[in-house]
Amino acid sequence: MDFIKNDVLTRLFVRYLAGGSSLRQTRGVTRAQIALFESQAGFRNQAVLQQAHFNYVFNKAISVFINQGVSVNSLCRANAILLNSQPDDTIRKVECKVSAPNGERLYIPPSPDRLHALMNKYVSDVKCQEPGLFNTIINYSRLVNIHPFYDANGRTARALAFAQLHKQPSLLLCFLYRLSADKDDYFNALHHYDVTSNEYVDCDYWSQAKMWAEETSSQCLNLIDTVNKKLTAPFILMPQAQVHLSVIRFLWFHPVVFLASLAKKLQVRIDYLQSVIKSLCDNRILVPRAMRYPEGTVVFECPQILATFEQIDSLLKNNLPRSINED
């Protein structure tokens, strides 16, 4: 099976990038709850619905940049998707200030009369760049400092960074370093750049972020690879094992499944899929769970994958590089 570890890892990053206050918004929502909602078995919970919505629109914003590239139009469209607004209404027409959660003023962005010229220059500079981490850092920081939109400037900048590095999760991971780093260091790193910066400025924060990303990404990818080999080992040599392997691959993206929706998504006859699910349950890869609501509904979850996701989440939030721990 063509198992793509990087795709699994990048999917896990989204929940930490998609919200306005990512850590606060994800604390009360588990991976299992999101997976249960996505199984289409009928599970509903307000916090889960909110997080699922954040994830969905963030992925749509990423797709805008991947499919259309960077332009003033694509930036406005991505921001409008995040805020459920119209692209023509996204660029702000009023003065504003950027404040920390405690109310402390951090930064006064450019006045509205400068925004169109700054955005045009920004897009022109981005189009002339070679792809890579350092240019993505410039683009991310610079867009946050231009602060062209009424809201979701950080989310728009993160969606652009995700699009520019989505094939290189070890580099993309640098933008999750803020989950573990000192907030002041993060804000200071942002302000190494002004609204016209187009050269990378080396600073401790981004150097540490890169080191942390390389170490953590390697650990995460090895963990996924090890668990996947355990999951697929009982079936790899089995005649006609393709559906078993397809279900296991699907589980890495949706670790809780509902038989009816799974059959539709994989385009497999439900009677044949039932035998595959039974085989996966016999091998303790899947575990049936009866739902309280809708009453009588049964879903199947993969404890090993859910446990793997918990381990990865722990690494993303707590795995600081040695040199940082020693300071």
Score class of each variant (00 low, 15 high):
F253I: 11
D89C: 01
D204I: 13
I312K: 00
A307M: 06
K5L: 15
N325W: 05
R24Y: 08
N198R: 06
T10M: 00
A78P: 00
Y272F: 15
A161R: 05
I66M: 07
T156N: 10
I270H: 15
F65W: 03
V123E: 06
L266S: 06
Q219R: 04
H116A: 01
R27L: 15
N55F: 06
A213K: 06
I277S: 02
A260Q: 15
N153I: 04
N139Y: 11
Q208T: 05
H192T: 13
E215P: 07
P109A: 08
L9E: 07
L190P: 09
K210Q: 14
P255N: 09
N45K: 14
S279P: 03
V48Y: 14
T308Q: 11
R142V: 09
L83K: 11
F309Y: 01
L259S: 11
F149E: 01
F187Q: 05
I108K: 10
W206C: 05
P169T: 13
Y150C: 01
V268W: 05
Q50Y: 14
F235I: 11
C96F: 10
L118A: 00
I224N: 04
G19I: 00
K230P: 05
R114I: 01
K265G: 09
G154N: 08
Q267C: 14
D88C: 13
Q168A: 02
E38R: 06
S261F: 08
Y140S: 12
L223I: 04
A52R: 11
L118I: 14
P288G: 12
A47N: 15
I146H: 00
K230D: 05
D2N: 06
T308M: 03
V287W: 01
Y140K: 10
N102S: 07
S207D: 04
T216C: 02
S261V: 00
M1R: 00
M1Q: 13
S111G: 07
D327Q: 13
L115K: 12
G103P: 01
T232S: 09
F309T: 07
R322W: 13
I66S: 15
L75C: 15
K317C: 02
R322S: 15
I224S: 06
V94A: 01
T90W: 01
I4R: 10
F3G: 12
V123N: 12
S314Q: 11
Y293M: 00
Y293H: 07
Y193L: 10
I146F: 00
L320S: 04
P255G: 14
T297R: 05
T90F: 07
N67V: 09
S111E: 04
Y107F: 04
A117S: 09
I62F: 07
E199I: 09
Q267E: 14
